[in-house]
Amino acid sequence: MEKQKKWFANSYLLLVFAILYAPIIFLAIYSFNSGGSMVGFEEFTFEWYQELFTDTRLFIILLNTLVVALLSATIATIVGIAGALAIHTIENTKYKSMLLTLNNILIVSPDVIIGASFLILFTVMGISLGFFSVLLSHIAFSIPIVVIMILPKLKEMSPSLIDAAQDLGASRWQVISRVILPYITSGIFAGFFTALTFSLDDFAVTFFVTGNGFNTLAVEVYSLARQGISLKINALSTIIFMITLILVLGYYFLSTRKKPVMIGGDE
């Protein structure tokens, strides 16, 4: 009975994942189809990948995407650390929860709204649409994510650690650089990588604020798909999927390798 239940649970789980991953796997398989369409698989080929790698335009777009993602994630992480530290040190609980709520609203609000509002803001301010506007908006929607990833680590830290550092002669900046930052490192990495992936796969916000020929991969794939079916898109999507998979696995191994550290208690 117990065994049967487990068997049922496992096969149900397998089915759900199979359905979720089927389109991606389907897409990936057809990226090797020499037939040129998604209708029937004819022969195995690397043709679409070759075409993809000779396409310098696409290569530039890929570079754009990576540059925007790395820059925005880095800047958002720096701003987010400062923000999290500021929110953490606020003693007035009412003010603190208000700031936190404002932060969380930005995370849950739809990308379309954020994109549209950035478009309006940039046009009003006279900022030309392109690399800079995309970067700015990516930084903006990444900051709340970084803040929310770092705050729990700060909350977990005993306030006496800060007292101890000061007591041992550390200035305010030394307290931050030698005690707080090392303590919240895992939160900082989590925030950075989440911001990175959010930026890499963002479509809606970028779609609104991009212009002047500047494109990121998500927007490019969308416009390619509109132009008509080419298996080049399949090849590109497969590569992006593989990179994402590697990133996620890498993060998983990094975060599980370190054991959680407790301080103050007896074992």
Partner: peptide, 27 residues
């Protein structure tokens, strides 16, 4: 506090978890 000739032993010890024993003492 950082400029006073005084050092404290805290109730929860407040040892820095990211440093080993030597570096804690050397802080």
């Amino acid at each position: 506090a950082n400029l006073r000739p005084v050092n404290t032993v805290f109730q929860d010890y407040a040892l820095f978890p990211h440093l080993n024993v030597f570096e804690n003492v050397a802080f």
